[in-house]
């Protein structure tokens, strides 16, 4: 199966006066890990929210499993979302529930399963992320990496077809980072999941991704398999991959000429 589960076609999106995306198109293949990289602040999270139907693009369309996310009815959108899981940057666990209840939440909301079955399912999901022993802890008692793993268990609770990771590696120590990488890889293989990983941690992602898109300047500046990307001739891509402070993506935020800023006002 190599068909596309997500197709983004000629999509533009702007927030207020500011254009975030200008006419971008991308495809995500079923069962693969697709990485979307780019400097921070260019709205990678926004892209995930556009795919999830939380934001509406100004032009263009987003299709998930053949359905236009933004033109279907509200109830169909909710049906569609049951097939998506999303791991938020902060984890977004419900702070007033234990880890167990957090993972059980989507099951209790969307299935008519008995408490016994839910109990088993939740422990299985927690086992998959290695947190079965922590099921009765509150989210505030977890470390950042554990919270993210717990949230991952919640995101896969309903066995979605697609899971979107929003900056899964940000602020993680090397061990948690390794654990998360391993998890993303094994989940994708074991459960036939399609994964979208949004990140700016280059080396980590290139080791697991099947296909990579690099976003900058409101558009896609490079795409391809990790090998193709590393051999790209685009200065922009190279700057991003090697982490050079200056280059096509400027170090300075757009501003007036320094001299005129100081002298011009007098």
């Amino acid at each position: 199966m190599t068909d596309n589960i997500i197709t983004v076609e000629n999509m533009s999106f702007s927030r207020g006066q500011r254009t975030i995306y200008d006419n971008i198109s991308l495809n995500v293949k079923r069962g693969k890990i697709t990485a979307i990289m780019g400097p921070s602040g260019i709205g990678k999270t926004t892209l995930l929210k556009l795919i999830g139907g939380q934001l509406i693009p100004s032009v263009g369309k987003v299709e998930f499993a053949g359905q236009d996310v933004h033109r279907i009815s509200r109830s169909s959108l909710y049906q569609l979302r049951k097939k998506m899981g999303m791991l938020f940057q902060s984890g977004a666990l419900f702070t007033n529930m234990s880890v167990f209840d957090n993972v059980a939440f989507p099951l209790r909301e969307h299935s008519e399963l008995s408490e016994d079955i839910i109990h088993t399912l939740v422990l299985l999901k927690l086992e998959a992320v290695g947190l079965r022993g922590a099921h009765d802890l509150m989210p505030s008692e977890l470390s950042g990496g554990m919270a993210r793993r717990a949230a991952l268990a919640r995101a896969i609770a309903l066995d979605p077809e697609l899971i979107m990771y929003d900056e899964p590696f940000a602020g993680q120590d090397p061990i948690s980072l390794g654990v998360l990488l391993e998890l993303i890889k094994s989940l994708s293989q074991a459960l036939q999941l399609t994964s979208i990983v949004v990140t700016h941690d280059v080396t980590e992602v290139l080791s697991i991704a099947d296909y990579v898109y690099i976003l900058a300047n409101k558009t896609i500046i490079g795409e391809g398999t990790p090998e193709e990307i590393q051999q790209s001739e685009s200065a922009l891509v190279q700057q991003f991959l090697e982490g050079k402070p200056n280059g096509p993506v400027p170090f300075h935020f757009p501003a007036k000429d320094l001299a005129s800023e100081f002298i011009g006002n007098q």
């Binding site: 979302r81 902060s90 666990l93």
Partner: peptide, 22 residues
């Protein structure tokens, strides 16, 4: 407000649960 700031409302929506109703 805090649920919004910690993305709990967004994550509810992504779990196909309407935060207005829930």
């Amino acid at each position: 407000g805090l649920m919004k700031a910690t993305e709990q409302l967004s994550s509810l929506e992504m779990m196909a649960v309407d935060p207005l109703r829930r």
